[in-house]
Design a protein around this nucleic acid. Structure first.
Lengths: 195, 195
DNA sequence: ATTTTTGCCTAACAAACGTTAGTAATTTCA
DNA sequence: TGAAATTACTAACGTTTGTTAGGCAAAAAT
């Protein structure tokens, strides 16, 4: 029943350790020990330590990008769009805390020839959110003069989850998404109706 | 006019490098090179690499705690309190981006016997914010059923600044604080007045 | 004027690092 | 059944790491 390949096991173990100790502090020997083998044996399955970080970061980026594209395809209403974009992000992040933490925290340690591509994907993701805000403004439901700033604030909240979320805690991912979505949407909604 | 001591220069240089490369990737030789001396010479002024990280993290924690205590002393109104707490935090973070980034990102690499004390200070700071939210609820101006969650969301936004803030960018720290404060206060205000 | 302290140096250390080479056992496939 | 591929091993490599020892020149203190 061990349907998950050795390489995937290695990636998973390295995500766990990169998160716990940081990319440089987690050694190949640590990762190997996690799997009960020797460090040199890892190289039957992977090319380098950098490759591990790379795989984790780019997989995460792809998953997030796929999610935001889907949202922009399926929904028409900007409020619905933002709401499900946030829900998806929370679901993805809480679904694999190790990989997400590495994606958010350790991407800076990517080999420098891979950094530009990674940053491009990140910006593309941010643009997905920005687009939703523009939609919302056209629909007259959102108010965000500085869109870049608004997106960064939204992403800060959803990314910070990796710093405190506990799967065994008293808040389910859905509840977190619900709370955050409410909080953010309230902050963005046009305020002409208020006294 | 070189009124800043060698030890302070070392701390400053290490903050810069810890931020850029991460605590473990930034070597003592890197730090020494930044100052134009040899790595071994650093040990005339400091005890260890750990001491550097420790100094940076605990100084930052102290500064933030002092600020929140002051706010809770000076103001009576909860909205004013939260507004100036946010402003102070933004000012401190943007005032020393290197140290702040290390404080926010690299604290995990503190020697493990120092970690509990650090976390205690962090929690104390969070409690300062929580107290403001409780005040606001008593004054009937804030609505935040889950206070811990609200505090984490507020702190996520103000801490994330270190990820994107550029001193040469087109947003001053005051403007950032203003925007963020508005956004957050809107999200917290009681909504009974709305249609 | 002489001692003490400061701040740097060179040289070296033991440990840990990522990775390669070469090999042996097992599993997969023709 | 035999060949090929897979997955692990031991041993070792060249680097890099934080840190110590010991010395030497300049500055400060006596």
């Amino acid at each position: 029943m061990d349907t998950i390949s050795r390489k995937e096991q290695i990636i998973k173990a390295s995500a766990k350790l990169f998160r716990e100790k940081g990319f440089e502090a987690a050694s190949m020997r640590d990762i190997a020990k996690e799997l009960g083998i020797e460090a040199a044996s890892l190289y039957s399955h992977i090319k380098s330590k950098d490759e591990l970080l790379e795989t984790i970061c780019f997989r995460m980026a792809d998953e997030l990008l796929k999610a935001i594209d889907e949202v922009n395809d399926v929904y028409f209403n900007a409020e619905e769009k933002l709401n499900s974009a946030i829900k998806n992000h929370v679901k993805i992040v809480t679904g694999d805390l190790d990989a997400s933490s590495v994606f958010i925290r350790e991407w800076r340690r990517l080999p420098k020839e891979k950094l530009p591509e990674f940053i491009k994907l990140r910006n593309k993701y941010e643009d997905g959110f920005k687009q939703i805000l523009v939609n919302g403004e056209n629909e007259n439901v959102f108010e965000a003069p500085d869109k870049k700033f608004a997106v960064l604030t939204i992403l800060s909240a959803v990314n910070w989850i990796t710093e405190w979320y506990n799967p065994k805690g008293n808040m389910t991912p859905d509840e977190i998404a619900e709370h955050l979505s409410n909080f953010i949407l309230t902050g963005l909604r046009v305020k002409t109706l208020q006294s």
